[in-house]
Design a protein around this nucleic acid. Structure first.
Length: 357
DNA sequence: GACGCGTGGAA
DNA sequence: TTTCCAAGCGT
């Protein structure tokens, strides 16, 4: 089957794309800690951290993990709390749990030897087709096209694919083109070049097409479709959730609440809260509720995206317990156990840093 | 196949 | 201010 259709254009021969890309990568590759090694453990760790995460955000976490867990064995032997604590603030916490689980998988199911081919790497929890391809190609030189968000964007533009890239049919088309492009390449390097190109040059918004080494190959550019490709049919509307946090403490303790499953921040710790659908909160009811039913699950709702703090400054006294609604900063306690992984860690930091209680 | 999961930066 | 979205995956 001819994947690079001659009918599509007047663009140059797509078979030359990998070489052009390789030259571009020579001149534009960014230095990253995980690019200094072919240790599959480190490649894997970096790939998990970078899922849906920018390099700048993930890099400090990568360094902290390597520092604390230089080998996969040390990671596997650590308590899960310790792994989660190190992940604190990065988001998508199931990645941390799966990371820990997979480390134990490697120790138990692979005798401590990191799996060395796509099919077995794919068995690791938290590793899907993209990540398995990336590890197999970068650490072991296997010819697997790793297709992530960057590659989807680059290929859909180059080949003028205007269909919805959220559809699996479209993704299959893109995967085939990616498979075609990786032939005759150094696969690990080619994959990284594709992703780097998407991240640096063929960016989502306002890419600099006037100064692009692939402009002559780009069907989207020739048709002035660049700002419409890749097409992603938008889904659900966002909704706001309002979390009113309370700090409840006596002289030496602060009340913490552990969130439960089927909602955001599963298993993480936080101050007890009242959730409402608007920014308003009935204080007496809220205080009564928070003190009377801390063990009762708060009302849950789906499709949440944003968490807004109430700024009302509320103060009440129940016996010897002080209750205050948290406006972005509050008071201090030394009794927050370090092993807890907090939702909204920056909020906790502000609490710890203040001295007015 | 649709949905849920986090955070921070950019426009 | 709001919206988008960034090296995806599990259920």
């Amino acid at each position: 089957m001819e994947l690079f259709s001659p009918l599509k254009l007047k663009s140059l021969d797509p078979h030359n794309i990998p070489e052009v890309l390789d030259t571009w990568f020579d001149q534009n590759e960014r230095l990253m800690p995980w690019r200094e090694t072919r240790d599959p453990y480190r490649i894997w760790l970096s790939e998990i951290i970078l899922q849906q995460t920018r390099v700048a955000q993930g890099t400090p976490y990568y360094l902290a993990f390597i520092n604390q867990f230089p080998t996969i064995e040390k990671l596997a032997n650590a308590p899960e709390d310790e792994v989660l604590k190190l992940w604190q603030g990065l988001g998508y916490y199931s990645r941390a749990r799966n990371l820990h689980f997979a480390a134990k998988q490697v120790m138990m199911e692979f005798s401590g030897e990191f799996p060395n081919q796509y099919s077995s790497i794919l068995k690791l929890k938290g590793v899907g087709p993209y990540t398995a391809s990336a590890i197999a190609s970068i650490a072991f030189g296997e010819k697997r096209a790793a297709v992530d968000g960057n590659v989807i964007r680059v290929i859909s533009r180059l080949f003028g694919i205007s269909e919805d890239t959220n559809q699996s049919v479209t993704q299959n088309t893109i995967q085939k083109l990616a498979d075609e492009l990786i032939k005759d390449s150094n696969p690990g390097r080619h994959n990284q070049a594709m992703m780097e190109f998407g991240a640096m040059q063929c960016v989502p918004k306002n890419p600099n097409c006037q100064n692009c080494p692939l402009s002559e190959y780009c069907i989207a550019l020739q048709n002035q479709w660049v700002d419409q490709i890749p097409l992603k049919v938008k889904k659900l509307k966002r909704r706001s959730r309002y979390f009113h946090y309370f700090i409840i403490q006596d002289d030496s303790n602060v009340w913490l609440h552990r969130r439960s499953e089927n909602d955001i921040w599963n298993g993480l710790y936080q101050f007890p809260l009242i959730e409402s659908s608007s920014n308003e909160l009935n204080l007496p009811d809220a205080v009564f509720s928070i003190l009377g039913s801390l063990s009762v699950e708060m009302i849950k709702s789906n499709k949440a995206k944003k968490h807004v703090l109430s700024h009302q400054d509320i103060y009440a006294t129940f016996h010897h317990i002080k209750v205050k609604c948290l406006p972005e900063s509050s008071f201090i306690s030394s009794k927050l156990n370090e092993v807890h992984t907090f939702a909204l860690p920056r909020l906790i930091d502000r609490y710890l840093e203040s001295n007015d209680f």
